[in-house]
Design a binder for these strands. Structure first.
Lengths: 147, 147
DNA sequence: AACAATTCATTGCGTGTGCAATTACTTGCT
DNA sequence: AGCAAGTAATTGCACACGCAATGAATTGTT
């Protein structure tokens, strides 16, 4: 086992740790958001991305990027949220292939309600993860001076 | 905006960064492993977890934990791999509810073939991520002294 | 020893996802 | 102007996933 092999092991271990932390946080968020607001993590992510634009539009492709989803999944996700009247599709006038999406009042309301849940659960998940020895360092890298 | 609010923003941003990096790496691994070995990331993860036990068994629940999957998903995943003759189910004698899984020779072979791909793609993905300013710090936390 | 409570794994069912093909529109080339 | 190539979003399809209910074996209780 030389130096090169060690680096491989370090990366593999690091990747497993990253995946573990990601999964832990996402699991907690998923359960909490679903239970309290009927939202999945991706759904929240999309609403939040739109909310951060504050009154401005986003195209489907941008949304797909923000949610780390394929374009087809994004189409259906937007359809779901539109059916729940949380956002609206707006046809572009300048490029009639493109579609803008915008939060409705109900969407903004739900987002504002869900945000405290999201933030609290995220904090708690990070605190819990920081107690796990093999996750601790990564946690502080994600959120410096946590807990 | 006080100190408390800042911490919330930092965590939210950190979580988005973590998710972004995770997604980047997983996407690259998924494509490469699928294309070159017909394996998904979870499938590789399970084979790798078994391989790291080196000749010893793992129960379904352990596998589920290692792959961050539900028990039902694990059942079907193991079934898939068993159908491809990459691993075998072994009934426990001491606890006849439990089931051990073990790599077959073909499973070990495929794992050995896939490992270089996995490691190379992981390295490359980390190097690419390190070039993205907002991911750089997290990358070095995952794999110190990378690139 | 017999029965309730628990645990491990599997199956039914509904849902979200990606890939590939498709539709609608725009851009570039001649 | 007209047609090919490219791009944005949507749909068909197959598949992997989680939850809840089930089957099978263990552990605990009286």
């Amino acid at each position: 086992m030389g130096i090169r092999d060690d680096a491989v092991q370090v990366r593999a271990q690091g990747w497993r740790t990253l995946a573990a932390l990601h999964n832990l946080i996402e699991g907690d968020l998923e359960r909490a958001l679903q239970r309290e607001h009927g939202l999945s993590v991706v759904e929240f992510t999309v609403l939040d991305a739109l909310g951060r634009q504050d009154g401005w539009h986003m195209r489907m492709a941008q949304l797909a990027r923000a949610a780390a989803l394929s374009s087809s999944a994004t189409t259906r996700l937007v359809t779901r949220l539109e059916d729940r009247a949380l956002l609206t599709r707006i046809l572009c006038v300048d490029d009639r292939r493109g579609i803008y999406t915008e939060l409705t009042a109900a969407g903004e309301k739900l987002l504002n309600e869900a945000h405290p849940t999201h933030d609290a659960v995220l904090q708690e998940a990070l605190e819990n993860a920081a107690k796990v020895p093999e996750l601790k360092d990564l946690v502080t890298a994600v959120a410096p001076a946590n807990a």
